[in-house]
C-alpha cells in the first residue's frame, strides 16, 4: 500500500520557504506515485512552530519542516547548522550530516531527512547609516537591535543592545524609531514591509538559515524501503537545487530593495572578515560552552573559515 506522511511546516503556508517545501512534497508525490505520498496539512495554526519538532518526536505528527534551532534548548548541537559556512552537499559528503542525524535521534527522538537549506545569509538592516571606526568596521555601540536568542551574543559583541520586540510590533516600532534595526533574511523582511523604513543594509551577510526536514522515527520505520529511498533521493536533490535557488532569491530581493533606495553599507577586507567571524564565533562558542561532547567534531565538519 501507499505510504502516507502527514506533514506540517513551521512557518505559515504563505511563507516562501513553506512554498518551497510544498514543491518538494509535489516532487516526492510525483516520483513516488502509488508508493509514497507527503500531505502538507498545514502550519503553525495546527501546532505552533516552536513546538513542532517535539510533536514529531512524540509521533503525533509524521513530519515537519522548520528551523532546527527551535530545538536548541534540548539539543545544543543544533548550533552546528546555525554556525555552518558550508553548503548541505559538502556536509552530507563529509559525515557532518550523519553526526547531527545521530545526535538528533538520541536527544530529540526524530529522524532528520535533510538539511533543507535555503542557505542564503542574514543581513543587518538599519534605519540610519552606522558610524565607521578607523579600521573600517561599523560602530553599533548603544544601537538597539531587535533581539533574537540565536544572535544576541553576536549583537552584544558588536556593542549593540538587544531589545525584545514582538513581531506584530516591529512595523510600528521601525516607523517610530523605537529601535534601530534588526538581523533578518531579506525575503522575510519583504513580506512584513519593513523595508519601507530600513534604509541601510550591512554587507556582507552573516550565518545562514538552519532549516531541515524531520520525520517521526516510528513512522520512518514503517515505511517501505522503496519509500525511504524516494524520500531521501528527492531530499538530496532539493538540498542542492534549493541552495542555489535561495541564493538567487536573496540576491533578487536585495536588488529590489536597492532599486527602491536602500543603501549598502559595505564592509571591506579585515573589517568584513572580523564582522562575519564574530557572528560565527558567537555560535560556536555557545556550542562549546554547552559542554556537548561533539562540539569540536561538529565545528571541524561544518565550518571552514
Amino acid at each position: 500500500a501507499e505510504d502516507v506522511l502527514r506533514s506540517l511546516t513551521a512557518f505559515p503556508s504563505t511563507d516562501n520557504t513553506s512554498q518551497l517545501y510544498v514543491r518538494f512534497a509535489d516532487a516526492v508525490n510525483e516520483r513516488g506515485k502509488g508508493i509514497v505520498r507527503v500531505d502538507v496539512i498545514g502550519g503553525p495554526e495546527i501546532v505552533p512552530g516552536l513546538q513542532q519538532i517535539e510533536a514529531v518526536g512524540r509521533g503525533v505528527v509524521d513530519m515537519t519542516f522548520g528551523p532546527i534551532s527551535y530545538a536548541l534548548g534540548s539539543m545544543p548541537e543544533a548550533d552546528a547548522w546555525v554556525g555552518s559556512d558550508l553548503d548541505p552537499m559538502v556536509t552530507r559528503e563529509n559525515g557532518g550530516f550523519a553526526l547531527v542525524q545521530q545526535v538528533a535521534a538520541e536527544t530529540l527522538g526524530i529522524h532528520i531527512l535533510a538539511r533543507f537549506a535555503p542557505a542564503a545569509p542574514l543581513h543587518l538592516y538599519l534605519l540610519e547609516e552606522p558610524a565607521r571606526k578607523e579600521d573600517g568596521s561599523i560602530d553599533l555601540t548603544g544601537k538597539r537591535l531587535r533581539a533574537s536568542p540565536l544572535y544576541n551574543a553576536f549583537y552584544e559583541s558588536l556593542g549593540a543592545i538587544p531589545v525584545s520586540i514582538p513581531v506584530p510590533d516591529v512595523y510600528t516600532g521601525l516607523e517610530r524609531g523605537t529601535f534601530d534595526g534588526l538581523g533578518y533574511p531579506p525575503s522575510a523582511i519583504e513580506g512584513w514591509n519593513w523595508d519601507r523604513f530600513l534604509k541601510y543594509r550591512v554587507d556582507p551577510g552573516f550565518l545562514q538559515a538552519d532549516l531541515g526536514i524531520y520525520i517521526a522515527p516510528a513512522k520512518w520505520a514503517t515505511l517501505s524501503e522503496e519509500s525511504r529511498q524516494i524520500l531521501t533521493e528527492v531530499a538530496i536533490e532539493f538540498e542542492a537545487s534549493s541552495y542555489e535557488d535561495w541564493q538567487k532569491l536573496t540576491g533578487d530581493v536585495n536588488a529590489r530593495f536597492e532599486a527602491q533606495g536602500m543603501q549598502v553599507v559595505q564592509l571591506e577586507g579585515d573589517a568584513a572578515k572580523a564582522f562575519v567571524d564574530a557572528a560565527h564565533d558567537a555560535v560556536w562558542n555557545r556550542l562549546k560552552a554547552s559542554g556537548s561532547p561533539h562540539a569540536d567534531a561538529l565545528r571541524a565538519l561544518y565550518f571552514s573559515r
Binding site: 536548541l72 534548548g73 538587544p162
Partner: peptide
C-alpha cells in the same frame, strides 16, 4: 532530567 532549556530573551529551565 534532560536539562532542557527554554530559550527566550534569557535562558530559563524547560
Amino acid at each position: 532530567q534532560s536539562g532542557t532549556i527554554d530559550m527566550r530573551s534569557v535562558d530559563l529551565s524547560g
